[in-house]
Design a protein around this nucleic acid. Structure first.
Length: 572
DNA sequence: GCCGTTTTCGGCCCGACTGTTTTCAGTCG
């Protein structure tokens, strides 16, 4: 079972327990355990085999026992018993905005409703208004909730949301004076996908800002607007929430609205131990109010360093901040080159010269052109002859662009049996070799893992490209066991790629962190297929930061000579 | 169900909003 599957099971149990009416802390415990399993970065079944389940935060005696039964037998009796008590479809009602566990229970017990369609039918027939605690308004609200559920859009990739948010911020700045204006929520934490766009402003006249926001030309529909907030839907369907606070609350509010929720809960628990209560309005000690104008103040009052938003997921950052052990995270400006770009030689839209020119404009010291190889015919992959021809063009360009070093690379296909498109003596003539999988992604775990590791052990392979193969919103990661891939990388010295294409972001934050724990080196690559694609590294850097990466963990922050020495050493 | 520089038992985050309520329960982020 994958970590995600185990986490999903625990979350289902949490929902069933809520509907059943168990004390809320029990379901909270299941959710916390689920979150921590998902953020583990290693195979939970492995942890179980080592007998170390209890070392995972949030897993105590009872959960360890249940998971042990699950991994041993494939069943969890507790879960199966719950499903006999509570109809399995009932948790689906919780997806209706406005319907929580109490209402779901009520709808089931009183009217026998089991699905969203059941609820819709009953609501339209006017059967909900007479239930205890509900009325006509509730019935309407539930119907509205069902309609919005049908319309509900998927989470959107960071790479889609981020530029839109920047554009809105610029437009709002133009329209109205605000002292502060920033993104908040999962967008500020740079999660790989976001549910909506959250913006936060501080101003003297809060209502003026909310009004100006609702009146922006990008806005298609105003969902709600008051003195301190506005919710809108954009022309492109995205929902954006803006909140406006007084300047003296800026720090407290920005901290609060950035989240994550788990991070905030842990922070408030810490505050509580120190006799303080923390909210978006700052601290309270008894009747004394302590608003914070900066985020630094929020953290400092608890004895913490300021925590970068990308780390705020309650994955140990608070403890690290307490001890002054937060990592100095890699930054955009640390990158000295890009090791994975394409050109018109394979499936790129820009010429080699245009790509080199664009890399120069970005201030890079080096760029590796890594076009596809022959068996990826769909991407116009080139044979060895093609690469030799390309080398002559690179030599000519190099003479014209002395300010940047142009490396010849290749994105070599890992074939179904783990062999590569080119033999060793050819690969040895390239400056850098990225090995990637683009086909046979459905192989089962053992096969695809062995295939990838075989390629990694090839001394001519420098980098493993987009290791999981996921495409956000379209394709799940392959079955490859990243635990074993990371272990193999640690042993062979293979560099793992953080592919920056917005719907890849692969490796993801969780496995980046695990790779770093094992001392594996990473490369933040754009995988650009046109000149503008080079800027995607912004998202790769953000993902690296979410994985706690420092500049020294990323090979393309190195000066050219150092990088070349590293590559040579690896090839022996 | 978890967990311990106040605890191995008794706690477990905070505030806003809404609707159904005469003081609060449920939901949400």
């Amino acid at each position: 079972m994958t970590n995600r599957e185990v986490a999903e099971l625990l979350r289902q149990i949490a929902e069933l327990l809520e509907i059943k009416g168990e004390i809320v802390y029990k379901s909270l415990a299941y959710r916390r355990a689920a979150d921590n399993i998902e953020a583990l970065g290693r195979d939970i079944v492995e942890v179980w085999r080592e007998g170390k389940l209890r070392t995972i935060p949030g897993i105590g005696e009872a959960l360890a026992k249940k998971l042990d039964e699950l991994f041993r037998s494939g069943h969890m009796e507790y879960y199966e018993r719950l499903l006999e008590e509570i109809p399995p479809t009932l948790p689906s009602l919780l997806a209706i905005p406005g319907v929580g566990p109490k209402t779901a229970n009520l709808l089931w017990r009183q009217l026998g409703l089991l699905t969203v369609a059941d609820v819709e039918r009953a609501a339209r027939a006017g059967q909900l208004r007479d239930l205890p605690g509900l009325g006509v308004r509730s019935e309407e609200r539930i119907l509205e909730g069902i309609e919005s559920l049908y319309r509900r859009s998927e989470r959107i990739p960071l790479g889609t949301a981020w530029p839109i948010a920047q554009e809105l911020i610029a437009a709002l700045r133009e329209a109205v004076p605000a002292v502060h204006l920033e993104t908040a929520g999962s967008l500020r934490r740079m999660r790989d996908t976001v549910g909506d766009i959250d913006l936060l402003a501080a101003a003297e006249d809060t209502e003026q800002v909310a009004k100006a926001f609702a009146a922006l030309p990008q806005v298609a529909q105003v969902l709600g607007q008051g003195a301190t907030k506005a919710s809108v839907r954009l022309q492109n369907g995205l929902q954006v929430d803006l909140r406006v606070v007084e300047t003296r609350y800026w720090g407290s509010a920005l901290q609060y609205f950035t989240g994550s929720q788990a991070h905030n809960i842990s922070l408030r628990e810490l505050a509580q131990k120190q006799g303080l209560s923390l909210s978006e309005y700052g601290y309270k000690r008894g009747d004394e109010e302590i608003p914070c104008a900066t985020e630094e103040q929020v953290y400092r009052l608890l004895g913490l360093e300021w925590i970068p938003p990308e780390l705020r997921e309650d994955r140990g950052e608070i403890e690290a901040a307490q001890q002054g052990q937060l990592p100095h995270l890699v930054a955009f400006g640390d990158l000295r080159g890009d090791l994975h770009v394409h050109s018109r030689w394979s499936d790129g839209a820009s010429s080699l010269e245009e790509m080199v020119q664009a890399a120069v404009e970005r201030g890079y010291d080096y760029v590796a052109v890594s076009d596809h190889t022959e068996s990826l015919a769909i991407a116009n992959g080139k044979n060895w002859e093609g690469f030799q021809e390309q080398r002559r063009e690179i030599a000519q360009l190099q003479a014209r662009f002395p300010q940047i070093r142009i490396l010849q690379g290749a994105e070599v296909e890992i074939k179904a049996d783990g062999s590569l498109d080119f033999p060793g003596e050819m690969l040895a003539q390239l400056d850098i070799v990225i090995a990637s999988i683009h086909s046979g992604l459905r192989q089962e775990e053992a096969q695809i893992t062995a295939r990838v590791i075989k390629a990694m052990r090839n001394p001519h392979v420098d980098i493993l490209g987009h290791p999981s193969g996921r495409i956000l919103g379209q394709r799940e990661a392959s079955a490859v066991n990243l635990d074993q891939v990371i272990q193999a990388a640690a042993e062979s010295g293979t560099i793992l790629e953080i592919n920056s294409i917005p719907d890849r972001l692969d490796l993801d934050d969780v496995y980046i962190r695990q790779a770093l724990r094992k001392g594996v080196k990473l490369a933040i690559n754009s995988d650009a297929h046109s000149t503008s694609g080079l800027d995607a590294v912004r998202y790769g850097v953000a993902t690296a930061r979410r994985g706690w990466a420092r500049a020294e963990d990323i090979v393309n922050t190195m000066p050219l000579e150092e990088l070349l020495t590293l590559l040579l050493a690896r090839r022996g």
